[in-house]
Amino acid sequence: MINVVLLGAGNVATHLFKAFTNAEEVTVKQWYNRNLRTIEKHKNKVAITDNLEDLVAADIYILAVSDDAVADLSSQLPFENRLVVHTSGSVSLYAIDKKHKRGVFYPLQTFSKAANVDFSDVPLCLEALKNKEDLPILKKLAKAIGSQPHKVNSDQRAALHLAAVFVNNFTNQIYRLAHEITESQGAEFEILKPLIKETARKLDEVSPFLAQTGPAKRNDKKTIKKHLKALTDEHHKDVYELLTKSIQQTHGTFTKPKAKPNKK
Rank of each mutant, 00 (worst) to 15 (best):
N219F: 02
I196M: 07
P208L: 01
F111V: 00
Y32S: 14
A159E: 08
E205C: 11
E127T: 04
K245E: 12
H251W: 01
A71I: 02
D204Y: 08
Q249K: 14
A64K: 07
R102V: 00
T38K: 15
V28M: 04
T223D: 09
K222S: 14
T21W: 06
V4I: 12
D238S: 11
A115I: 07
L192Y: 05
F189W: 11
A164F: 01
F189M: 12
R37K: 15
L16V: 05
Q148R: 13
K143E: 15
T199G: 10
N22Q: 15
L242R: 10
L52S: 14
K43N: 10
T223Q: 06
H251D: 02
I191M: 13
Y175K: 01
K260W: 02
A58Q: 07
K139R: 12
K263G: 07
E80H: 15
L7P: 05
T250I: 02
L108H: 10
A19I: 07
S184D: 04
F189V: 10
Y175H: 06
P123S: 06
A128Q: 03
L160Y: 13
T213C: 06
Q173D: 11
R102H: 01
H227Q: 15
K245V: 02
K256R: 06
L124W: 00
R34L: 07
H15D: 03
Q185S: 14
Y61T: 13
Q212N: 03
D68T: 12
E241A: 08
D54E: 13
A158Q: 14
D233F: 09
E53T: 11
T27Y: 07
N33C: 11
H150A: 10
A115T: 14
D97R: 06
A19G: 10
D134Y: 09
A19H: 11
D121C: 11
K264Y: 02
N81Q: 11
A163Y: 06
L192S: 03
A9M: 09
N169Y: 06
A115D: 07
E234D: 08
A230C: 09
A164V: 01
N116P: 08
R102C: 02
T250V: 00
K99I: 04
S66G: 15
R37C: 11
